[in-house]
Design a protein around this nucleic acid. Sequence first.
DNA 1: ATGGTTGTGTTACAA
Length: 258
Amino acid sequence: MKIASWNVNSIKQRIDHVLRWLKDADPDVLLLQELKCIDDNFPRLEIEDAGYNAAVHGQKAFNGVAILSKHPIEDVKRGLPGDSKDEQARYIEATVNGIRVASIYLPNGNPAPGEKFDYKLRWMDRLIVHARELLATERPFVLGGDYNVCPKDEDVYDPEGWAEDALCRPESRAKFRALQNLGLYDAFRAIVPSGPYYTYWDYKGGAWNKDHGLRIDHLLLSPQAADRLVTCEIDKRPRGWEKASDHTPIWCSLKAAD
DNA sequence: ATGGTTGTGTTACAA
């Protein structure tokens, strides 16, 4: 079971890349972020023609998340619990093949400090509460997406330059650790324990060509999912394609349950 | 080069 995540920065602009990558990488599940469209404008037919079902939680112009799956998508929940007034489309969760999966677009939080940073930290608190509830089920699950958190200095090309940014600030890293400390496993670091590996390169300043990147897209696994982890990779190729998203896909594979 | 890019949806804001 291959589960992937990709912030596509507008599904309308990136549909050809998504179809190309689905064909090439053949994941069972692809978690998408930053659709930047309402549900009605999601390119459902193209996705279905490629052999995937889709559960979408869209929003006009910004945010938007989706779960694509070759297998049936069951028990879909849209929105992160914990704040009925939060209308930003940043979370969708469903069951696929007996595994609970979530597509997460965590708030960027810049400029920090400020209102947006406060929203990010509150959103992370809600995610921690919800992850605790999911862990209590003792079932396999994968929380994948653009966390907008760079966990350690080794995950950013210029730690000093980024120290004050919302993606790298100690408050963001502390919340991310608190999430992991509940007992979640960073699939990538379970396979590749250290070293600089990135999932995002800014459009500005030729960051891609200079390899000025950050590791901010993550697949966090419950213990029951981690038991089944076989491998995890960042596929850098799509970042080099013409008219690329600023993020590239990350994927893991889980073996069948014992 | 006192900046840089991309996207949405109007010409400002988010990332």
